[in-house]
Nucleic acid binder design. Sequence first.
DNA 1: TCTTGCCTTGACGTCGGCGTCAAGGTTTAC
DNA 2: GTAAACCTTGACGCCGACGTCAAGGCAAGA
Lengths: 142, 142
Amino acid sequence: MRIGELAKMAGTTPRALRFYEAQGLLGARRAANGYREYDDQDLRLLREILALQEVGLSLDDTKPFVECLRAGNETGDSCTDSIEVYERKLAEVDACLDRLGSLRASLLSKLAGALARQPGPCQVADHRDGTEAAATNPREIS
Amino acid sequence: MRIGELAKMAGTTPRALRFYEAQGLLGARRAANGYREYDDQDLRLLREILALQEVGLSLDDTKPFVECLRAGNETGDSCTDSIEVYERKLAEVDACLDRLGSLRASLLSKLAGALARQPGPCQVADHRDGTEAAATNPREIS
DNA sequence: TCTTGCCTTGACGTCGGCGTCAAGGTTTAC
DNA sequence: GTAAACCTTGACGCCGACGTCAAGGCAAGA
């Protein structure tokens, strides 16, 4: 099949496929007229790449999986390199979660401090400041 | 004071200060020779900007805070615009936490599946595959 | 044959927050 | 006097994963 068809089947774009090829993932055979030609195996590889992207892996991270599949394995994560990517990425996600958690805490304390300094519900409410604060806080602290 | 001195006092670089000026934050008076001149108020503004950056706000997000300080308020978050930024950013962080959480779950299940498919400790270990899997799993699933 | 729609390569744009280099003018310490 | 250390503007680089546009070749239907 040609690039547009493959892209549509996998839910991506021809531009993305050319980019993957330029990155060394998912090369293609060429027809006589120079058009890229793909088969079902390429569709499998592409779907693997896209699925891993959804899980947060970078394109570079997907290379071991693609190589693993091309080596004849049933799944892309049948190789130790792939599993190491999983583990590394998991650690990165955990680190990011920690950082975001502390950012959230800092933001909350700053917001709380600001609301405490504000006169707040004492003003003749021309909009819903006090109400909004009362409504959003319980939801976000939980 | 001049740009290098201010930068050092705030723990940043002259390049960053010029960038903030180009973004419309933290403008400076000019000395006769064209050098930027800053005072203690500018140091306060700059520290506000940097503190907010640390909490995850973009430069654009810090504008209301700077304007609030320049309007004569004691703190940058004494204005409703600033508080709205807090709330919006908090929502963004929460959304990001949710997404990262589900990414983490997906990664974990993929990793677990891959390890289950692996023969694992049955091979004559030429390196530490089985050991590593056994050691990392309890730590990361917890 | 003509139009439409696919394909090709190449090259620049995006976003944020600066880093880094270039080419010069200024000030300062010795 | 001179070298070091500061300052100025301008411009390009970076990162990731493509989007978008340009200029042209190829294919298929009416």
